[in-house]
Computed example of a mutant assay.
Amino acid sequence: MSSLFRSEEMCLVQLFFQTESAHSCINELGHLGLVQFKDLNPGVTAFQRRFVKEVKKCEEMERILRYLQKEMVKSNIVIVATKEKEMVPCARDVLELEPSQSDTP
């Protein structure tokens, strides 16, 4: 009889993606839930990483969207849940959500 806490058999692989396809490939792997990512540069601080600006933009956009969701709930505006697989937006879609400098007062 197998133990309830026994791990599944795993193997360590290294994947290389072309820059253009990396976003969609990582998104699909994440939705499968069968991968674990390992930091190959543990000594590098967060501010020395390659995509720091993009991550900060995403965090700020996430904060804004949470605020809008909270305001919609307060105003009794119905938020329709979809049954579609949630896709992570690509970088250009996130930039479209961001207010441009001309939009700010």
Rank of each mutant, 00 (worst) to 15 (best):
L15P: 00
S3H: 10
V52P: 01
E86P: 01
E71K: 12
T82P: 05
T82C: 10
R66C: 05
T82Y: 07
P42W: 08
Q18I: 07
V55S: 13
R6T: 15
G43V: 06
H23Y: 06
Q14V: 11
S102Q: 12
K57E: 00
N41Y: 08
T19L: 04
S75C: 15
E62G: 01
S102P: 03
A91G: 13
E8S: 14
S102K: 10
E62I: 01
A91F: 09
V55L: 09
V94F: 09
V88P: 00
I26L: 07
R6W: 11
I79P: 00
Q48C: 03
P89K: 00
L65E: 09
P105G: 12
E54A: 05
F16Y: 15
A81M: 13
M72K: 14
C58V: 11
I26C: 04
M1L: 02
I79G: 01
E9V: 15
E59C: 06
L12A: 15
K83W: 03
F5Q: 08
Q101F: 10
M87G: 01
V13M: 01
L95W: 03
C90R: 13
Q14K: 12
A46W: 04
S2P: 12
L65C: 07
E86C: 06
S7A: 12
L4Y: 10
K74T: 10
F16W: 15
P99N: 02
M87L: 06
S3Y: 11
K57I: 01
E86V: 02
E96W: 03
L34D: 08
Q36P: 00
C90G: 13
E62D: 04
R49K: 04
M10N: 02
Q101Y: 09
V73C: 11
V55N: 11
K53W: 08
F37I: 06
L29Y: 08
V44G: 00
T45W: 01
E98L: 08
L29R: 07
F37E: 10
F16G: 12
L40K: 14
F16R: 15
L95P: 00
V55E: 11
L68I: 09
A46R: 04
N41I: 04
T19N: 04
R66K: 15
F37Q: 10
M87P: 02
E60Y: 03
H31M: 09
T104C: 11
M72C: 13
L32I: 03
F37N: 04
N41H: 10
P42D: 13
H23S: 07
